[in-house]
Design a protein around this nucleic acid. Structure first.
Length: 224
DNA sequence: TCATTAAATTGTT
DNA sequence: AACAATTTAATGA
């Protein structure tokens, strides 16, 4: 229930701020709980806040304007999304849905702008995140449909670790095989099969209700 | 703290 | 998709 503690744990950028800035963020931010499968943000609505996943797991479905290719990205706790719509102050271009019960933080656009204006480290953090995301989408658009299910799972898992800054953090992620299936858009039993294949290749370790990534680079590059 | 039971997750057909 | 096996969490002595 301690907001400050949550932010230190689930917002890598929070540590980069000065005490004054931290104080303002804590004052302006709001947190809400969402049950599994709840719609957090809807496509088409205007963006008033930066969305942070303090706890839980969220999926972002991006519907391209030209049609049906709705590719998915998973966002684990510690991930922050939606800055694109904020910067251009336009409507959200995707739906954000809770995959399981999640604690969602909202940083108002005003505060977001304030940080942009006053904190160099914050800008640097954002730049890095945007860069990562672009690389992600390019790779996705290129390969997503052509990849075998095993590779799709590998990529989805790799992406779940991307938004986070992993140094120091654990390489273990609490996610069920069913949830991975949702993200990779394959059945749960196929997910199971894929995970076993990846475990065979020493890229990850299957745990109960979680997976531990052993070789992130290997996952990103996995093919066939 | 340990044993029993229920719920959730995984493995198999 | 349905079922069985396994693991974790919850309950109560």
């Amino acid at each position: 229930m301690n907001l400050k503690y949550s932010l230190q744990d689930a917002a890598a950028w929070f540590e980069l701020l000065t005490p004054d800035q931290k104080e303002r963020v804590q004052r302006d931010i709001s947190v809400a709980q969402y049950p599994a499968a709840a719609m957090i943000e809807r496509k088409g609505e205007k963006a008033y806040a930066w969305i942070g996943v303090l706890n839980g797991l969220v999926k972002v479905s991006v519907g391209t304007s030209d049609g049906k290719l709705a590719s998915l990205t998973g966002v684990p706790s510690g991930g922050w999304i939606g800055e694109g719509s904020l910067l251009k102050s336009e409507a959200r271009k995707y739906d954000i849905v809770a995959l399981r019960e999640s604690a969602i933080a909202r940083l108002p656009a005003k505060t977001f702008d304030f940080l942009l204006d006053s904190s160099i480290p914050f800008n640097r953090y954002l730049l890095h995140q945007l860069n990562e995301r672009v690389a992600q989408f390019i790779g996705k658009a290129e390969y997503d449909r052509l990849l075998a299910p095993d590779a799709r799972v590998a990529r989805c898992l790799a992406e779940l670790f991307n938004p986070l800054l992993y140094p120091g953090k654990s390489m273990r992620l609490d996610i069920t095989q069913e949830e991975i299936g949702y993200l990779a858009r394959i059945s749960r039993q196929r997910t199971n099969q894929a995970l076993r294949t990846l475990e065979e290749a020493n890229l990850l370790k299957i745990e109960y209700g979680a997976v531990e990534v052993l070789d992130l680079e290997g996952l990103k590059q996995y093919v066939v």
